[in-house]
Amino acid sequence: MQRSKEEKAIVEYLLGQADESEQNRIETAYFHDPEYHEQILTLEDDLISDYLNNKLSGKERGLFEQHFLASHRRHSKYEFTKRLTEYANESVPKAVRMKSENTASWWSWLFPVQPKMAWSLVVAAALCGGMWWALNSSSIRSNSSQTGSAVEFAEQKPLSPELPLPTSQSSPSQVEISKQASSNGVSVGVPKATQQKTFTFTLAFSTVRGEPDEQLTVRVPAGYEAVQLLAQINDHPLYASYEASIKTVENEKIAYLTRLKGRADSNGAIVPVTVSAKQLPQANYVLAIYGITKSGQSVPLGDMLFNVSNH
């Protein structure tokens, strides 16, 4: 936002940079003029929003962190604005969903929000499925005589075989999955692209295609206590930590996870989000991911819409 000369002077005052005569001028003015005082309080709000939206200059950011946030009152105001911004951002996917209720394609409903993030959920689910399979397959094999049901499950055919992908995005993402899988040593059982450019998943949970108007579906088989969503976040640096919020599309809070550690990959970062399977009954969900900078700033990275069905 462009600031007037007076607003610049007030911002300097708020950041502790005004000299004594300027301090006295501003203070005399706001002691006598309630509107001027309110203007300063409004600029306080603007400074906080600008900081949260990464719009301050380097010098201003430094002063904001060292001087502005040193005050308990201003820090509280900052925290409140941060929460309000998070809340406001989380309410957007719901609005998008409501607007798109009349659209025919579930894919076109899913992708206008955050194409990369939505697509990343597919990749993440694939990786997750592979990891779950790799972790469980050895124990399944070694205990096959005792756990017949597990063997039966491991040999189960895909629940639903195909997930059509947009042509423009399918190839790189398939390469990405293979690379990830081999580097993690879980290539066996990792869902691979078939010649029809489809993905299939048989373990832990999978993304399958549902009815035409259905959204991306995560199928969590019975018997699993935890669900790990690996959020692949492209085109973003690795943040000091991450926060994740899971809500239903009706805005019912499911979980808010903090201090999540991501790991870098060739395209960005992967953030594991683990919740209890009981927390995700059959419903439509929004997973929102935030990157937390070293200075504690929260950067919204996007939302993923998914549906959980058939535990």
Binding site: N53, T81, L84, T85, A88, N89, S91
Partner: peptide, 8 residues
């Protein structure tokens, strides 16, 4: 207020 604070 929700629109105002949604991410620009």
């Amino acid at each position: 207020i929700l629109n105002y604070f949604s991410n620009e």
